[in-house]
Design a binder for these strands. Structure first.
Lengths: 131, 131
DNA sequence: AAAATATATTTAGCTAGGTAAATATATTTC
DNA sequence: GAAATATATTTACCTAGCTAAATATATTTT
């Protein structure tokens, strides 16, 4: 089998696990953080906006969003269109946000220490060329 | 957040989904194929050998292996050391193996069509430099 | 305005990764 | 050889992706 795919899957799994270690002290998982980050960036969002933006399926977002509501990270309310639900960061999330972001930035920097800025750019470009 | 990680996760998810589409006609999922392929390559293997080789945790392999036994793809037997279980491809799997491998090879080639051989090598090297 | 279609979300159930702890058997130590 | 430790596997239970089908509400068509 093509070693490229093997390397890709191995590395992604490794990174996900490491992100989870990093986020443990904030009591968050990788995907939960991804959703929080997306919501913060956009202010207020409907569930559909979230899953379209993240390029995952709707049920995945339903589940993660409700877990985040349960954990007190986000608030949810009905939209004007009564089919939709609008979410935004809770008070707690807004307060903790920059500390968590700091942890993630440190983590990301550590992971790419072995790459120059140019190599990072090339890597992104090459990844985009797959399919 | 670092666009490299975003691209990496997006691409991996995309590839997993596409592999699953490719494998659908063989009634297999991506991880099941990975395990089958590993077993075929090594002949006979204990569960521990599989999870160490694939760099995943033991319970993941226990589950996938038993599903593959259930589906008739592999045979399982106790080892000399009575703690361990040894697996190998079933008759059916041995017969179908090359057809499935062919599908996968086609798929992989299609995915890297946009890359030269050199770019593929560079991509692997750059991925290895992460952490 | 009723019927048909479209959109937003949810529910159910599958694969697939993880951790923590339990169980069974081997191996090592005292 | 009994006790302690190590190894192989399993069980229970999380997160996190997916598809297919259900439900509720909007929008479009006739």
């Amino acid at each position: 089998m093509n070693p490229l795919f093997h390397e890709l899957f191995q590395k992604t799994r490794f990174l996900t696990n490491e992100i989870n270690v990093t986020l443990k002290k904030h009591n968050l998982y990788a995907s939960q953080w991804t959703v929080l980050y997306t919501i913060q960036k956009h202010g207020e969002m409907s569930l559909t906006q979230i899953w379209k933006y993240l390029n995952v399926e709707a049920p995945t977002i339903t589940r993660t969003v409700y877990r985040l509501v349960e954990l007190g990270w986000i608030d949810i309310r009905p939209g004007k269109d009564r089919r939709e639900k609008i979410v935004r960061l809770s008070e707690k999330a807004s307060q903790d946000f920059s500390a968590i972001k700091e942890s993630i930035l440190e983590f990301e920097d550590r992971m790419v220490e072995g790459l120059t800025k140019e190599e990072e750019t090339i890597l992104i470009e090459l990844l985009r060329k797959i399919k």
